[in-house]
Structure formats: C-alpha cells, structure tokens
Design a protein around this nucleic acid. Sequence first.
DNA 1: TTAGAACCTCAACTAAACTTGAGGTAAAGA
DNA 2: TCTTTACCTCAAGTTTAGTTGAGGTTCTAA
Lengths: 149, 149
Amino acid sequence: MPHSPLSVGQVAKRCDVKVSTLHFYEEKGLISSVRSAGNQRRYKPEIMRRVSVIKAAQKLGVSLQDIKLSLASLPNNRTPDKEDWAALSQQWHKLLNHRIKQLENLRDSVSGCIGCGCLSLVHCPIYNKDDYLADNGESGAILLNRDNE
Amino acid sequence: MPHSPLSVGQVAKRCDVKVSTLHFYEEKGLISSVRSAGNQRRYKPEIMRRVSVIKAAQKLGVSLQDIKLSLASLPNNRTPDKEDWAALSQQWHKLLNHRIKQLENLRDSVSGCIGCGCLSLVHCPIYNKDDYLADNGESGAILLNRDNE
DNA sequence: TTAGAACCTCAACTAAACTTGAGGTAAAGA
DNA sequence: TCTTTACCTCAAGTTTAGTTGAGGTTCTAA
C-alpha cells in the first residue's frame, strides 16, 4: 500500500517542524487531518507540500493569516499543485520585490544621512511613512536643523 | 534660556511616538531622563536625536536589544554625534545589505521553483537554513521527488 | 483658586507564532 | 504482556514591542 497516511510525528520530522507547530497550524485552520480509530492525526502525504509552502511563504515575510487566505483562495482549498504554486509564488514574488525595494531605499537613505552629515533625523525620510520611501526612488539628502531648537 | 529641558509630552509629540513608548524605552534602558522637583521626566534636547536613531534602526529591522547594545558601545553611552552615527549606520548598512541579499536569493529560488516545475519543496533551498542561501549565490534548481513517497 | 491638562506608577492586556507542561490514552516492539 | 514511545487535549508560558487603564499627583492658566 503506497502513500499510507502519515502520523503527526512523521510529518513533523520530515518537514522539520515540531509536532506542536502542526497542532498549532491545524488550530489556525492552515492544515487539516483526519483521525485514526484511536483519535490520532493522520495526514495525506501532500500535507508535506502544504507545510512546505507555508514555511516558504513565511520566509518571504508573509504572515500566517495571509498565507491562510492565499491557500483558502485556491479551488476548494486544495494543497497547491504546480499551477497553484506558480500563481502563489508569483504573488509572493511581487511582495518580495516590493520589500527589497523598500530596504534598498532605506539603505540608500542611510547613506544619504552619512553623506550629508545631517543629524536632524526627525524629518528624515527614514522615519517617515514606509510608503514615502516605497513610492519614489529617492535616495534623498536629508533635511534641516529642526531638532535642538 | 535656550534648550530648556523637555517634558515627556513634548518629546513624544516631536518624535511622533507615544508617551508610553518613551516610558517603555526608559524602562528598557534605551534612553534616560532626569526628574523635575515634582518627579516629572525632563529630557535634554538631544534625546530627540537618540529616539530618532532608535526609530531609524528599527526600520532597518534592528531589534531594540541590538540597538541598545550599539548605543551602549558608544563612548560613555552618549547620544550619537555625527561620527557615531556614521559608524552606526555603516554597521546597519551592512546588516541591510545582508538582508537584501537573503531576500534576493529567496526570490530567485522561488523563481527557480516555478521554472523547474518542481514541487518537492522539502529539500528546496527555500526552507533550508538561512545561511545556506546567504552564503552562496545559488538560485538553484530544485530537487528530487521525495515527498509523496 | 480651581478646573483641567499633563504627568506619575504599576499592573494587565495585545498580537503573532509558537513552546512547554500536566495528566491521560494509544500503539509498537521485545 | 509489558514497557516505552508516541500521541491526545487543554491551559499556560514565551518573546517583542509596545498600549491601556486605574488610581493618584503636579502644572498651568483663566
């Protein structure tokens, strides 16, 4: 009998997460299981892929809540197949690009601060709204002496 | 009398943080104050710069703990001046570059996964140790069919 | 002088993403 | 069969970075 159902321990081991994490994901509605006669969790092998997708998305900085929504948006909430994964990862790829861009802008602003020697950080883009930085490519020289006044 | 000491409310307003946040930072040893006759907090104007540096570092993803350490490493734990800020931001600039690089690797790995159509994510670089990705520039093609076995 | 704004401390609460522990059941191997 | 390992539930604890609220004091300004 190929593909026999997996126990929570087996899944935990092979996905390199703790059993408690799988319990937690289930509680949060990210994964599901059936129960054996003795009330133990049993998983279809594809659970591995689902857990893996969750982990991958987390590394991209996606919250469990958003991951849940993404997965739930798949046809009958199935474990992502090849096309699904492509779509999901494209979504997340965009997100990643956005975050990278923000960080780069931030980094350049820091350099700008060094460059201009300005310490009036209160009005510096760095602590202004994230989207200020995200929206335009400014690596900007920073502002005026309005602290210490 | 120029530069009169600032109250917690004034600092909060001008740094755009809540009063409770300043209390919190003080409790955590990130900032300090003296007390007025009536036991109210009074700050030197440079507190603004210190708070601003804290906020900037946070945007770079530095934890309060690490910010505290960085600030504490300055000569007599002073509020960063021009040179100090240059040094700190250079430190943090490195950190940022590292994080950007990790994200880029991750992003490229995601693309790799789409490209090869492989769904065996268990062994995919994406959920292997962060440093695996950080250390080499692999955008890797992914592995074998060891899930679903 | 007196109302109301601003301040004080301390404790408890929030959110995310889990982990740990207690007390008890099920399954697997010698 | 017996022992050990794996599993179950439910409650409570952990970390980070604060926020909220209660109960009380101090400042400021009309």
